[in-house]
């Protein structure tokens, strides 16, 4: 799912070749695990089918002669995705990271992304806290476990928020 948004995000700065997209993706989001070409083209095909990207062909042969560009629908979709906080759950970092980088990359306010996410996290934490306060010991222990994980996420969020400037300099 997020690979698609990553590609949309990368395209927002201008049309690119598939090969180009793979390289940019690997650089920013690969973290040592490169994307297969197949994965790139299948994702692009899905985006094409949904009308989120379009193809500009250049004279010549082969797949590398195709340049992809984002459509207006693609931009809207991207915005919607960035603006919707993720449902708080464990091991969210990679998605959140992608979102933050893409927001920075596309000149959007990454802090908004983080704040929205915090609110979402806190909403859940409040609920868990309420449940804990009213519940028995088992409830308390279970809720606490979730709370500590969410708190860890939030800490990561804070840390990221504090380092947005640094990150922006690296991404651009």
């Amino acid at each position: 799912m997020s690979v698609g948004y990553a590609i949309l995000g990368l395209l927002e700065n201008g049309p690119r070749h598939g090969y180009d997209l793979k390289r940019s993706y690997d650089e920013r989001f690969g973290h040592g695990r490169a994307l297969h070409y197949g994965q790139v083209y299948s994702t692009l095909a899905r985006l094409l089918k949904n009308g989120l990207v379009e193809v500009e062909s250049e004279p010549g042969e082969g797949p590398d002669r195709k340049r992809y560009a984002i459509t207006t629908a693609g931009v809207t979709d991207m915005e919607g995705w960035l603006g919707t906080p993720e449902k708080p759950e464990p091991y969210l970092q990679s998605t959140l990271y992608t979102k933050v980088v893409l927001a920075l990359l596309t000149g959007r306010d990454a802090a908004d992304v983080l704040d929205g996410q915090r609110t979402e996290h806190l909403r859940l934490m409040r609920e868990l806290t309420r449940r804990k306060t009213d519940g028995d010991l088992a409830d308390q222990l279970i809720c606490d476990h979730a709370l500590f994980h969410l708190e860890a996420d939030l800490r990561w969020l804070e840390l990221t928020a504090a380092r947005l400037d640094q990150l922006a300099a690296r991404v651009r």
């Binding site: 704040d115 409040r126 709370l147 708190e151 800490r155 804070e158 928020a161």
Partner: peptide, 17 residues
């Protein structure tokens, strides 16, 4: 507070940056 678990006792939050 800077602790989320403490902030979770609130009804809403405001962030100062």
């Amino acid at each position: 507070t800077h602790e989320a678990r403490v902030a979770a006792y609130s009804d809403r939050e405001a962030v100062v940056r």
